[in-house]
Computed example of a mutant assay.
Amino acid sequence: MAPDGRVLALPMDTGPTALFYRADLFKQAGLPSDPGAVSAHLKTWEDYLRAGQQMKQATGGRVFMFDNITTVFNQMLAQQNLHYFSPTNQYTGNQRQVKQAWDYAARVHQQGLSARTTSYSTDWSAAISNNSIARLWEPSG
């Protein structure tokens, strides 16, 4: 919405995302595989990081919890009330919410917990087909 109340654009997708995961790969890594147990186990971003470390260690670095750090950054930022601009059109991209998402994505990269694919590319599709990515966040419906 513009400051005067005019509609400038409508969101393409306002639906929630869901966690899609490979129960067999979770079991292989010693992680819970039942949906309720997975939900209880992965409540925070730190939980995801620990699960990513466990997945990497259990599979000899062949399977990853994160497809790429861009997805991590975007999903983490999407959970925040502010992204790059405030409702009054003030730039907020240099504030805590963006830095927090950036730092977390950097940790995923530094710890080698990402498959380092490009979303929706042929390498991303191949990584999914070759069982290298254990879970994805995607639109639920």
Rank of each mutant, 00 (worst) to 15 (best):
T70A: 07
K27P: 09
N68D: 05
D24V: 04
D4Q: 09
E46A: 07
R50P: 03
P87M: 07
L19Y: 02
L42R: 06
M65N: 11
M65P: 08
L42N: 06
R6H: 10
L19I: 03
G15S: 11
V72G: 00
T70N: 07
L31N: 04
T17S: 12
P11A: 12
D103E: 13
L77C: 08
W45K: 12
N81A: 15
N89Q: 15
K27G: 10
M55Q: 01
S33W: 06
I69L: 05
M12C: 11
L8W: 11
D13E: 10
A101I: 06
Y91I: 15
L82N: 10
R62M: 09
P35S: 02
D47H: 07
Q80E: 15
R50H: 08
V98I: 11
V63N: 10
S39V: 05
D13A: 13
D34Q: 14
L49Q: 03
D4V: 04
H83Q: 14
F66V: 05
H83N: 12
Y21L: 08
N81F: 11
Q79W: 02
L77H: 09
W45M: 10
A78V: 00
Y21M: 07
K27H: 15
L19A: 01
A29M: 03
K99S: 14
P11K: 06
L8E: 14
A23F: 05
Q95Y: 06
Q53K: 10
P16T: 08
L49S: 01
D47P: 11
T44M: 08
M76V: 06
R62Y: 03
V7K: 10
I69M: 06
N74V: 13
A37S: 10
F85W: 12
F20Y: 15
R96F: 10
N68K: 00
Q97H: 05
F66D: 06
I69K: 11
D47C: 04
V38A: 02
P35W: 03
M76Q: 09
L31C: 07
G61V: 01
N89G: 14
N94A: 09
A29K: 07
H41K: 14
M65I: 11
M12S: 14
L49V: 07
Q90T: 12
F85T: 04
F64Y: 14
N74R: 15
K27I: 09
M55D: 00
S86C: 07
L31A: 06
P32F: 00
Q80W: 01
F20S: 12
K43R: 13
V7A: 10
S33N: 09
R6I: 06
H41D: 12
N68I: 01
N74E: 11
I69R: 14
L10H: 15
R6W: 00
L82F: 08
Q54T: 13
Q80I: 06
R22L: 08
N68F: 00
D67H: 10
M55K: 00
L42S: 05
S86M: 05
N94Y: 08
Q57Y: 05
